[in-house]
Design a protein around this nucleic acid. Structure first.
Length: 760
DNA sequence: GGATCTCATGTTTTT
DNA sequence: CATGAGATCC
């Protein structure tokens, strides 16, 4: 088979394995997606399995989409009937189909996101007369989520202390509210399907027969519920092919349990285990550093990662005075590497928490350099988008009181808290959800109700709108048509677009949503809402931009970049402060660092700041303990986290020399480039200066001609005073020098004209 | 019913 | 610091 060409032996073994359980342990960069894709091709082409009998599950829509695209090419469209998607999307589809088998739900159920969940918990707390301050909705939600991930229903929930007793009651009420709203949260999609299968062996059997082959990506990220689901589906035939890497398990806090890999081996003792150990991404040096880091975690299945890319550029470690300098230097270094031929899209800047991105963004803005920010406020989490989705959801499912509550007075239409409270109790008295009661109010003029004249008019006005939208839906309107009707009837633009820049942004977001809705075209409202609920990210819309990528370490999983910067390597930031007192959590922080390191193909820059602003206060930091675990010979630059006292003296010296400590000048100019400096006594066996700026092996560009000025050099100019060289390159027979002058900013000078004097 | 102020809060976030 | 939610005031 031609797809087998170009696979190494282990990959080929995985792809061509026979039936039965197969566990593929795949190190970073070892081609696991390829293996998974080819395995499906192999099943269809060589083992004569119908695509209709295959289920492939991933964790992200992006991964599913990518695999689908690859398969389309490889199978030339012969993948009709293949089930490929995220756990959640696949479960939602099955649950909708089997809705009539579930007590209390119908096929129109909606999916509640985290925001909605919080509202439900708050409602539950209120109904139970519990104080939100004492029992924070987030804590309650965490408890409920943990239970669901472990397949513990409210009935089974065992309370061992006061808090868990409260959680139990809230959980119980929470589920009742969801059911009344014909809604499920993300965890329900998984749990309910397992519950259904356990109650209805006949239903389970149908799916067991259909899904004769099951393939799972990122298996280390499965939680108990997901594992239980897989186990049930595979119970008959045992054709389950899972790919994962416990060292890249970074979602423990979401219920993921990489021990499922061990469970798999126990549950399927006959399973074939295949290790993918050849890395096709990184240089040996990067791989060695990553291995040195991960080795400290206990109870691992050791993988002997190797690469054919021997050697490589050493990893640069650098301490900076504060996060502003760190960010400026990252940007300066990127600019410099770009001048050496790297593409803007070759860079990634990674950090532990989203809040760290701002300083880095500011540095990019100062430098006038474009960047691509991953994550931030997700499109579907924006208020205006959530509002409009709530309108659509209400039209789709008038029983959804959470959506109703969100928009009953948004935009403001004179229905305040008092009227809403009255409406709720009035509806409850009739055994109806608020929107249903409201609809009755407008359809039957004789309805008895407790509202005053003004309130009645307002309520009737809104009820009338809702009625019209429902009519449109009945007449076949799709999401786009409805959205237009809603925007018009509510004058939503007047509400969000106040003429300010933010207002225009908000309206632009609304228009973008409209664009998405129209794109969905013929698809039903129900399907549209399901996609929106399960996608919640539109990163694909700005994929083409070629610019450095800013992202959290979590968001970096699965990606790769020629040059990677990992910033904020300080105790309390990278091992995050919340993880310091728990061994398991610390191990996860280590894996997170490992994931970051293994994203780099050629060059890796690790940095930390001597001082960092946190919650408005500047505090002195300790370099990350993880840095100590990287062997010296892989590093260069000042400091590997060792003898930080000495290094700090150096930093301080430089700080006073160049006023780095002064905020004004910090932003006014960018100090010298980030490069190993032989004046630092503890720098060890520095390689030739060009070494870290060029990828290993073949340099991308011929070595630069000798220049008169060196980066980092102190120079003085007759008019501008003292400055520091940022960059210097020869231009034919002259030399162009970029110098940062304290207080004046950056100037580009021609050496022959500027008559710069070297000061040291 | 709506605007303004005060206070607590604060990882990561595939769905 | 910066955001969000509840309380208070107009």
């Amino acid at each position: 088979m031609n797809v087998l060409q170009g696979l190494n032996q282990a990959q080929r073994a995985a792809v061509t394995a026979g039936r039965g359980p197969i566990l593929v342990l795949a190190g970073p960069g070892s081609g696991k997606t390829r293996v998974l894709t080819y395995r499906i091709v192999y099943l269809v082409q060589e083992m004569q399995v119908s695509p209709w009998n295959i289920m492939a599950v991933t964790f992200t829509n992006k991964a599913a989409r990518e695999m689908q695209q690859r398969l389309e090419t490889a199978l030339e469209g012969r993948l009709r009937g293949l089930t490929i998607g995220t756990f959640h999307a696949t479960c939602a589809r099955i649950l909708r189909r089997e809705a009539q088998q579930m007590v209390g739900y119908d096929a129109d159920f909606v999916i509640f996101d985290t925001d909605d969940q919080r509202q439900v918990v708050r409602q539950a707390l209120q109904e139970l007369n519990l104080d939100e301050k004492k029992f924070s909705p987030n804590k309650m939600l965490a408890g409920i989520g943990a239970a669901k991930n472990e397949l513990i229903t409210p009935e089974q929930y065992a309370a061992s202390n006061y808090i868990s007793e409260v959680t139990h009651r809230v959980y119980q009420r929470y589920q009742e509210i969801l059911l009344a709203n014909n809604a499920m949260d993300f965890d329900d999609l998984l749990m309910n399907i397992v519950l259904l299968f356990d109650q209805r062996p006949d239903v389970l059997e149908r799916y067991q027969q259909k899904y004769e082959h099951i393939l799972v990506d990122e298996f280390q990220d499965t939680n108990t519920a997901q594992y239980a689901l897989l186990k049930r589906l595979a119970a008959g035939h045992g054709n389950i092919f899972v790919v994962g890497d416990s060292d890249q398990s970074i979602y423990r806090w979401r219920g993921a349990d990489f021990r499922n890999i061990n469970r798999f081996r126990r549950d399927y003792p006959e399973a074939q285990m295949i290790l993918l150990e050849q890395n096709y991404r990184s240089t040996q040096i990067i791989l060695d550093a990553a291995k040195a880091i991960i080795r400290h975690n206990k109870d691992r299945v050791e993988k002997e990662l190797f690469t054919e890319r021997q050697g490589g550029a050493r990893i640069v470690v650098h301490e900076f005075y504060n996060e502003v300098e760190e960010a400026d230097m990252v940007v300066a270094t990127i600019e410099r590497l770009m001048l050496q031929g790297l593409d803007p899209g070759d860079f990634a800047v990674m950090y532990r928490t989203n809040s760290q991105s701002r300083v880095i963004e500011e540095a990019f803005l100062r430098a006038g350099l474009k960047y691509r920010l991953v994550g931030a406020t997700r499109f579907y989490a924006r208020r205006e988008i959530k509002d409009l989705i709530a309108y659509l959801r209400l039209v789709h499912n008038p029983a959804d009181s959470i959506s109703f509550n969100r928009i009953i007075n948004t935009p403001p239409r004179g229905i305040g808290a008092k009227t809403q409270g009255l409406l709720h109790s009035w509806a409850a008295g009739q055994g109806l959800q608020p929107a249903e009661a409201l609809l009755r109010l407008v359809s039957d003029p004789d309805t008895q109700h407790p509202f005053a004249g003004r309130a009645t008019a307002m309520l009737a006005g809104f009820g009338q709108m809702l009625r019209e939208w429902l009519g449109l839906l009945r007449n076949g309107a799709n999401a786009g048509d409805l959205l237009d009707a809603i925007l018009q009837a509510t004058d939503y633009r007047g509400y969000v677009d106040d003429g300010t820049e933010e207002g225009q942004d908000r309206w632009a977001n609304v228009m973008e949503l409209r664009g998405v809705a129209i794109e969905y075209g013929e698809v039903s409202l129900s399907e549209f809402l399901e996609n929106v609920a399960l996608i919640s990210d539109v990163d694909d819309l700005e994929e083409e931009a070629s610019a450095p990528t800013l992202l959290t370490l979590h968001a970096a999983k699965g990606l790769e970049f020629p040059a990677v910067f990992i910033t904020g390597l300080e105790d309390g930031v990278l091992p995050h402060s919340r993880s310091l007192d728990d061994g398991e959590e610390l191990a996860e922080e280590r894996r997170l660092f490992y994931v970051g390191l293994t994203r780099a193909k050629d060059q890796l820059y690790l940095s930390y700041a001597f001082r960092r602003n946190l919650y408005g206060e500047s505090a002195v930091t300790t370099p990350s303990r993880f840095l100590l675990d990287i062997p010296d010979q892989l590093l260069e630059g000042i400091g590997s986290g060792r003898s930080s006292g000495q290094r700090r003296e150096e930093t301080k010296r430089r700080a006073s020399d160049w006023n780095w400590a002064s905020p004004a000048s910090t932003t006014a100019y960018r100090p010298g480039e980030w490069r190993p400096d032989s004046s630092y006594p503890e720098s060890k066996s520095l390689p030739e200066p060009s070494r870290w700026t060029e990828p290993a092996g073949e340099p991308r560009q011929p070595a630069a001609t000798q220049t008169q000025f060196r980066t980092g050099q102190k120079v003085s100019h007759a008019k501008f005073g003292e400055g520091i060289v940022i960059e210097s390159k020869s231009t034919g027979n002259d030399e162009e020098v970029v110098v940062a002058f304290a207080g004046l900013g950056i100037k580009k000078l021609v050496a022959s004209m500027a008559r710069l004097e070297i000061r040291e």
